[in-house]
Nucleic acid binder design. Structure first.
Lengths: 188, 188
DNA sequence: ATCATTTCTAAACGTATGTTTAGATAATAT
DNA sequence: ATATTATCTAAACATACGTTTAGAAATGAT
């Protein structure tokens, strides 16, 4: 008996995600969300609760995109260091905007909300971290000559390196980042 | 003939810097600045022009602190890789807050203002980058066996790694960061 | 003592923020 | 057809934002 929604929730969530990804959470206003999502305040608040709710759905959407476009290909690729390095390059391209690198939305959000922790945001980020580290671990441990301890240290190292690259790409030129990736994998 | 200021500008600048360092620029309101600086709106705006002016003075103050506490000691230390690694550890400690790592104020600001570039902010950050890279270069080139090209690549690599560490420390545990620093210097 | 000048206090400015509300509109069940 | 329910529009809400202003208080030159 109810009236039907005139918008597709997945689609407006994607639009919101793009806003948060480009501008960050604090610097994205409710008015900007209305405009980029193309719907009225009422629709936003009845569908998402509040601004934080829009962020949460955006993060989930982002995570699903990372899984689909980056983690799935990695899981299908040969278990080699080259595949890992490709993953880094692919992730970097994934974060490429019109005229800048936007970083990883989840990492950006983690940094922005570090001083105002939110349990639901943290849960998503924690989940995401584990997924990526597990993928790294599976590949690194395929080299039987490595001890478990070494594999764990390399996993942790690469995970921090990935965060560093995605962040640094926002404010450094491509040559520096390219050089950094190559140097990073000399260690592995 | 004028009345005297009742506050010390360097001191209130330091207080402002601490606010921006902890909370970021957008999430630091004028009211928070008034409170932490301990002076009235009028005093802030007559001394600094506007909020962006307070940030600029804060960045300059921060830069002078980095020079004094980190770059000067490095320039006096032996020209060795160990000194460089110590610099990384010292920088990390320099960014340590009450119960979190705050990152580098200049890098934090660069990330936050990446979408709204400010010429004066960029100039300070550019200047700061050059200073640090020069310090790295001076140390790395002291190993005569390295080609200029290698020294340049290692300089760039370490500079990006430093940015990564200072950012990543905000959202990773100390063991991960410690491990990352050690792995990073295996390459050098 | 008076004047000019600067700083102080304290209140207010206009605008932007996140969010809510009142009523019109559309879809189905009866 | 009507009642019910959810959605839409459009305006408004209270509060917080960055900033300015009017006038009192203090300093030093004349």
């Amino acid at each position: 008996m109810p009236r039907k929604k005139e918008y597709d929730k997945a689609l407006v969530t994607e639009k919101a995600m793009e806003q948060f990804w480009s501008k960050g959470y604090s610097d994205t206003s409710a008015r900007m969300l209305e405009k980029s999502m193309g719907i009225n305040p009422f629709s936003i608040y009845s569908s998402f609760g509040n601004k934080r709710g829009v962020l949460l759905e955006s993060l989930k959407y982002y995570q699903s995109q990372v899984r689909e476009q980056l983690l799935l290909p990695l899981s299908k690729a040969p278990k080699s260091i080259d595949s890992l390095q490709d993953f880094f390059v692919n992730f970097l391209n994934f974060t490429k905007g019109k005229d800048c690198y936007k970083g990883c939305l989840l990492i950006n959000t983690a940094h922005e909300t570090a001083t105002t922790p939110d349990a639901r945001v943290n849960a998503i980020i924690e989940n995401f971290s584990t997924e990526i580290k597990t993928a790294f671990y599976e590949i690194l441990k395929s080299d039987q000559s490595k001890t478990n301890e070494l594999v764990e240290r390399q996993t942790s190292y690469l995970f921090v390196a990935l965060q560093g690259i995605l962040s640094a790409a926002k404010i450094n030129n491509e040559q520096q980042i390219d050089n950094y990736i190559n140097m990073t994998f000399l260690n592995i």
